[in-house]
Write a protein that binds this DNA or RNA. Structure first.
Lengths: 359, 359
DNA sequence: ATGAAAGCGCTAACAA
DNA sequence: TTGTTAGCGCTTTCAT
């Protein structure tokens, strides 16, 4: 029996004092499993952690004891000694003025969870808004509370990626970093997608194609604009200043940008918008100006969140695999955790042009 | 000096071996802070935990040492002894066939994070889909890994709420539970909101008002239907079977339901849809049938995720305060954790009718 | 007000 | 293959 006496009923909380309802028992420990199985703690630990150096009999009795007791390892205790936390953190770092639509984020999250569900890892969510929260997140990450970081950064001049990487914590980003050190990331094929979009417009006879571009300090903005430019130039077209107006991914900015494009080029016959919300804005602006879509002007957007499907007419969009992006971010992160010093990796997911009534 | 010798450079990992880049130092411990401050671990612990029984001098030197070392308490170690985890978990339990739109969830999440950010609590996210994942979540929660649970359950016959409550883990739900024990929850005023919607339709001269209701095993479905029924009956109208068709919150179901309503009552002049996606579906069905909105038929939806704002014409909707819902869920949960045996609490958030072109 | 000491539940050498 | 042992970093009596 050894000194296990005190374990039988710690501090006298045996349920009676709680009144009705099931008594919230203390969770069983390794020690209790070991006793029931008639082996030592170490052996139980080996079983739990899947060590091969365990006899079949020991394995059987331990497994039975675990099942009987409903034993689940205490993460805190384990983490204390292994210095692993079995925890990943997803940080969404936004400016106080949020620009991105939530559905995008929700889809990434869904993918992350899908990838995580067969593992024993848990996901901590940190929505960092503004400097104070950013620093808190950084402190949290920097102090060994997580095994790795998934980062969705919503602005280009973010110090987080470098700070996290510098702290030696494995990191994977959604989207390419424009400056600073090379960091693992997953991204959509924004250049190719934009090229396809413009290619489609060209193929359907459009020649005066304008674009509502994204912010130039974010890779999404830069890449989608590049795809547009390349495609237009390849067709001998003009991708000069007047055909490009920058927005900030919001519907309002898409609308305003399109108004300017119309003022500059009343004869435009197509608009490629670098986000779905901006495409929606473009649609509004065109209608307000009395233009008909798609007969008069065609609109193609980049599908950040499937929102564009609800436009009327539904917008032709470059479909990204947002959920897959979340999944792959996790895979990359796990690989990075397993091999901290490997080469930086990137993964570019293909996009697909979904043609609808609008173009 | 005691036995602190071994701490100076544990296992010789002093950075040189890592090659270039900043050496991933071990995070400073209480012990180190204590030594630097010239006090004992216990005193540092008191300072960190805001105990009053500390002399001003001690407090000052400890505070300085903490700042100098950038000390952050190790959660695992703390949790091991306190049996608190300072962790809440948000469980989204969906059927394999997801019904709810993501934006709703994203908004709740945003509110949860907002409420959490001034605290030291962290949020773990569990997306439980199907039985296997549900049981895993239950095991996780039941074994003391979290201090409390926020639960968004997407179907009516869910065993999770009762299982969690039975395990004695503090729980707050989004939405009212139709059966089983009384559980703390936050909900929108679905009855009142639906009543307002129908009231508006009546006020604008509509008399033949149909509804696309939600699933009858969920409080959202039941309550919105009840609000509709009450309002229609109060006006002396007919809320009988033919005017009510049940959908499952998806756009497709809204469309199908509306088609049936039109078949049954070609003379209907308004549709109240119990979700924004179903309202969108209703819009499509009406158009397909050659009806004009809102001249011919008015449409009002329940706004679960602001998606309806993108319809054309923009839909008149009952606006819920989804983000606030998340915030309040956290407040309720914290209150419950502080007072596990208090009376069950509920919080009904007011809704607001946002009138747009469609009705 | 402060310190000494005992452990929380677990893993990881090391012995056997 | 198994058991023994020594902590991981922290909070918390219990002395002082």
């Amino acid at each position: 029996m050894s000194g296990a006496v005190g374990l039988a009923d710690p501090s006298g909380t045996s349920g009676e004092s709680r009144g009705p309802g099931p008594a919230p028992r203390r969770a069983p420990t390794l020690e209790e499993v070991a006793e029931l199985a008639g082996v030592s703690r170490a052996t139980v630990s080996r079983v739990v952690n899947g060590s091969s150096r365990v006899s079949p009999e020991a394995l059987a009795s331990v497994t039975a004891a675990i099942a009987q007791l409903g034993y689940v390892p205490n993460r805190a205790a384990r983490s204390l000694v292994t210095r692993r936390t079995d925890t990943l953190v997803l940080i969404v770092h936004e400016r106080p003025d949020t620009v991105f639509s939530d559905p995008f984020f929700a889809s990434v999250l869904r993918g992350v969870n899908r990838a995580l569900s067969p593992t024993d890892l848990q996901l901590v969510l940190l929505q960092a808004q503004g400097e104070a929260q950013r620093d808190r997140a950084l402190r949290y990450v920097g102090n060994g509370h997580v095994d790795g970081v998934l980062l969705i950064s919503l602005h280009g001049d973010d110090i987080m990626p470098n700070a996290i990487a510098a702290a030696g914590v494995p990191l994977v980003m959604a989207g390419r970093l424009l400056t600073g050190r090379m960091v693992d990331y997953v991204d959509a094929d924004n250049v190719g997608g934009a090229r396809d979009a413009v290619g489609h417009l060209l193929a359907t006879g459009r020649r005066r194609i304008a674009t509502v571009a994204g912010p130039p300090d974010m890779s999404v903005g830069v890449d989608r604009l590049r795809g547009y430019t390349e495609a237009v130039r390849a067709a001998g077209g003009d991708a000069a200043a007047g055909w490009v107006v920058v927005g900030d991914f919001t519907e309002a900015s898409g609308q305003a940008a399109t108004e300017r494009l119309l003022a500059e080029h009343p004869d435009l016959d197509a608009v490629f918008a670098a986000s779905d919300l901006m495409a929606l804005g473009a649609l509004r602006a065109l209608r307000a100006a009395g233009r008909r879509v798609p007969d008069d002007v065609a609109v193609v957007g980049f599908d950040d969140a499937a929102l564009a499907a609800y436009a009327d007419p539904p917008l032709t969009t470059v479909r990204q695999q947002v959920e897959l992006m979340g999944q792959e971010m996790v895979q990359l992160l796990l690989a990075r955790i397993a091999d901290p010093d490997g080469e930086p990796r990137e993964l570019i997911l293909p996009t697909e042009l979904v043609i609808r009534a609008s173009a």
